[in-house]
Amino acid sequence: SEEEEEEWRRAKERGEEIIILGILWKPNDEEAERRIKEALRRV
């Protein structure tokens, strides 16, 4: 969703871990980033 995407962007800017759509994303975690982008597209 729009607000999840916004939340994720803010976490990326701050360089902090975030759990979004049930996926743990850490800074520079390209695999998780790809999965999150896929999940955001499906929503």
Rank of each mutant, 00 (worst) to 15 (best):
R34G: 06
I20Q: 01
P27E: 06
I19E: 06
S1K: 11
G22K: 01
A32W: 02
G15M: 07
L40K: 01
V43P: 13
R41P: 02
A11T: 03
L21H: 07
K12H: 12
N28Q: 10
R9I: 11
R14Y: 08
G22V: 10
E13R: 06
I18Q: 03
S1A: 15
K26D: 03
A32G: 02
A11W: 07
N28M: 09
W25C: 03
A32Y: 01
E5Y: 14
I23H: 02
V43I: 12
R35H: 05
K12G: 02
L24K: 11
E4T: 14
R34I: 09
L21V: 04
L24S: 05
R42I: 12
E3N: 14
E38H: 03
R14Q: 08
I19S: 06
E17W: 13
K37Y: 12
I23K: 01
I36T: 02
L24R: 08
E38G: 02
I20S: 00
W8C: 08
N28P: 04
V43N: 09
E3S: 14
R42T: 09
V43M: 14
E3P: 13
E2S: 15
L40P: 00
E38R: 02
E16D: 10
K12I: 10
I18M: 05
E7I: 15
R42V: 13
E31M: 05
R35V: 04
E17V: 12
P27D: 04
E38Q: 06
N28S: 07
A39N: 01
E4P: 15
K37N: 13
I18C: 11
E6M: 11
R9M: 12
E30A: 12
E7M: 15
G15Y: 04
K26Y: 06
E13K: 10
E17S: 12
E3L: 13
R41N: 14
E7A: 15
E13T: 07
E3Y: 13
W25I: 01
I20C: 00
E16F: 11
E2T: 15
A11H: 08
R10P: 03
R41Q: 13
I20F: 12
W8F: 14
E7V: 13
E31L: 06
E31P: 01
R35Q: 13
L24E: 03
I19H: 04
R10M: 11
E7C: 14
D29V: 02
I18N: 03
I23T: 03
R42L: 13
E30H: 12
R9K: 10
E6G: 07
E3H: 13
E38K: 03
E13M: 08
W8L: 10
I19A: 06
I20M: 03
R35W: 07
R35F: 04
A32V: 05
E16R: 04
I19D: 01
E16A: 05
G22N: 04
L24G: 01
K26M: 07
R34L: 11
R9G: 04
P27W: 05
K12T: 08
E7F: 15
A32E: 03
E7K: 15
